[in-house]
């Protein structure tokens, strides 16, 4: 399959968006958003990572198989977090230390 050529303009747009989001992280980092401190930081980080994967790493223009590989990696990270959280969240429900 022929390689998709990304124009310099497209790269520049993505780069500018990444810079804006970095600025957003810095501004949010200096604000006290209470329980949303981590949420906001993570949301911005996920958007930035997605932009890098989709455009700088060309997944946006890749085959279905390549996209499946990328999604599998994220799904497996989700699996790790999800089943670990079943423990972290439910610890203490019984009121018995260590259970």
């Amino acid at each position: 399959m022929a390689e998709h050529i990304v124009t310099k303009k497209q790269y520049a747009y993505v780069f500018v968006i990444l810079l804006v989001l970095t600025l957003g992280t810095t501004v949010a980092g200096n604000m006290d958003l209470g329980p949303f401190n981590v949420v906001v930081a993570l949301v911005i980080a996920v958007i930035k990572a997605s932009l890098v994967v989709l455009f700088f790493m060309h997944v946006y223009w890749s085959t279905k198989l390549t996209r499946l590989v990328a999604v599998s990696g994220i799904a497996w990270l989700g699996l790790l977090l999800w089943l670990t959280l079943t423990d972290m969240i439910s610890r203490g429900w019984l009121g018995v230390p260590g259970k």
Partner: peptide, 18 residues
């Protein structure tokens, strides 16, 4: 095989529900 790792931790302080 990726969904079962917690069976190594039944007495390690993992919650009973997990």
């Amino acid at each position: 095989g990726f969904l079962v790792w917690g069976h190594h931790m039944f007495v390690a302080g993992q919650s009973v529900y997990a």
